[in-house]
Design a protein around this nucleic acid. Sequence first.
DNA 1: TTTCATTATGTCAAAATAACACATTAAGCT
DNA 2: AGCTTAATGTGTTATTTTGACATAATGAAA
Lengths: 253, 253
Amino acid sequence: MPDPGNPVEQPDAAQFPLLPQLTLDCIILGFHEDQLRVLLLRWKDTQEWSLPGGPVRQNESVDAAAHRILKERTGLDQLFLQQFHVFGDVVRYNREEIKKKLKHVIDPEKWYERAVSIGYYALVDYSKVSPTPDAFTEECQWWDIKNIPQLLFDHNHIITVALQALRIQLSWQPIGYNLLPEEFTMPELQRLYETILGRTLDPRNFHRKIQGLGIVERLETRRKGGAHKAPYLYRFNKAQYEAMLTEGNLSFS
Amino acid sequence: MPDPGNPVEQPDAAQFPLLPQLTLDCIILGFHEDQLRVLLLRWKDTQEWSLPGGPVRQNESVDAAAHRILKERTGLDQLFLQQFHVFGDVVRYNREEIKKKLKHVIDPEKWYERAVSIGYYALVDYSKVSPTPDAFTEECQWWDIKNIPQLLFDHNHIITVALQALRIQLSWQPIGYNLLPEEFTMPELQRLYETILGRTLDPRNFHRKIQGLGIVERLETRRKGGAHKAPYLYRFNKAQYEAMLTEGNLSFS
DNA sequence: TTTCATTATGTCAAAATAACACATTAAGCT
DNA sequence: AGCTTAATGTGTTATTTTGACATAATGAAA
């Protein structure tokens, strides 16, 4: 379910007792047509969008809840999932406004107390995702990160914080394994980095850098189809990639 | 109060309704005698130690709760406080063992369900702290980070994760403003970095680096008192320091 | 005044980064 | 077949940053 910020009575509450006043919000990011995109949900009978999210069940870990929600929204099992912040203000958004906007979906009497929300971001292979709405929503769709509408709750803010965290990750860990298909081209990887960093990179320097990290291997084949020189295909060297995820590029001086 | 992992009935529960099944744990770090030290609490009538922590009240933000707990344990108001991880496993530690160990402090019947804990680390000026135990504990003391005893709950693990987060912070943000007194020497700052990083640094290179960041200003005065050449005193350039905290040294390449 | 402990400081080599331009080639068009 | 278009693949150089390294200076104590 999306995070109603203040959790509401859940459809499957009887079956699955929940941790009270605690929710997750998931920023599910994909990369398509040179755009970083985020998966959003549209609430039933409204034009209001929000992040996917939901409560944590008593018998599952917080991480497991995040995985479950991701699985429900995307169909994907394995993905890069990263806790990045806890949103714990007493008043995270205007509750009356939300109650009003969602009154046709959720009985305004059924809103509980304030909730603390744990933010996760996930990096997924856009082409493998089957966007699926939940019990409160009727549409699940990708949105260009540069073009997010006004969202419910404090979700615009949460996205901002998630992107900051993602850029920090990028500065000392590699990114791409979970965002690109198995085989990809160097310009594609470069555009992914450029999109996250919000600036252009020099293709020669980028190539040198990535090769230096040893996280990719060039294949024999090239990708044909464009009206231009065919780029080589690459795949990630999983072992080296994992190593860079763990050790990272941490260096003080 | 320390985090009983599973929260227990709180002494002031009537006065302050709490967020259920949610607690904070605070890793309060100071620097003294070239050691990074963490503040720990000893439970009443036991030899068992744990991290400071406690529940979040309904009418305060999670960050405010962390500040409150820090204020209660240290007497300090302004300090560097950083959320670093949420510990959300269903079983974070052996509950029966804990109930038994603390049976003289907390009625084993009074333990609630599992709790999710939000980890914060704080960097404080050792000399300004007045360690103060809470309602469940009778001693509050600094421990060398290299010499932590077996702690209650999953607190040894939490400390490990906090130190990892601290090292990551160090790799792209300056550290020191909240850990050192207003005036300090370059060797002191260097030893702080060395302690956090767990390795020695070259004094010439360190000096060059720190000067390059522009976060410190050398004063006219030197610190006398040691049987050796008197080191210059420095103070942080707050503006530049803040700038480095925000912008950081983030660079992909 | 001698000794001891610690601090302050500069140079050079190596590595990493930033800046920069042009030949190649697949596809589409004529 | 030949031309055009669009994007890719690639190397060099200057600059900056990092890492390695050793000695003179000085305050306190003996």
